[in-house]
């Protein structure tokens, strides 16, 4: 370690931090890049319909759009409230 290094070592390295933040951010943004623009609206309307019948949370529904070379897949995932939990008073 040279004399110059000694003075330098006091500074924290920020480049690795930048890289890590970028990797997370870019991965997230790429996921949404090719999505059709109607997805958020679709998600909201589906949620409204489901809520007519079952009381679910805002985040109980997830809409995923994936694109391969030849096909586009729309994956819809709804987590219904736990029957056991919602009916606990009956069992106890």
């Amino acid at each position: 370690m040279s004399l110059l290094d000694y003075f330098r070592s006091s500074k924290p390295k920020t480049a690795p931090l930048a890289k890590e933040r970028l990797q997370i951010l870019v991965a997230h943004e790429r996921k949404f890049r090719n999505q059709p623009s109607y997805l958020p609206q679709l998600q909201k309307e589906l949620l409204d319909v489901i809520r007519k019948y079952v009381n679910v949370d805002q985040d109980a529904i997830s809409v995923n759009f994936e694109q391969d070379d030849n096909q586009e897949t729309l994956e819809l995932n709804i987590v219904l409230p736990d029957y056991q939990q919602t009916n606990k008073p009956i069992n106890s």
Binding site: K13, A18, K19, L22, Q23
Partner: peptide
């Protein structure tokens, strides 16, 4: 500055 860890390196940028 790359050497000091203050700036993203070519490899860092290319990894992304």
């Amino acid at each position: 500055r790359v050497k000091l860890g203050e700036m993203l390196s070519l490899e860092d940028v290319q990894e992304i």
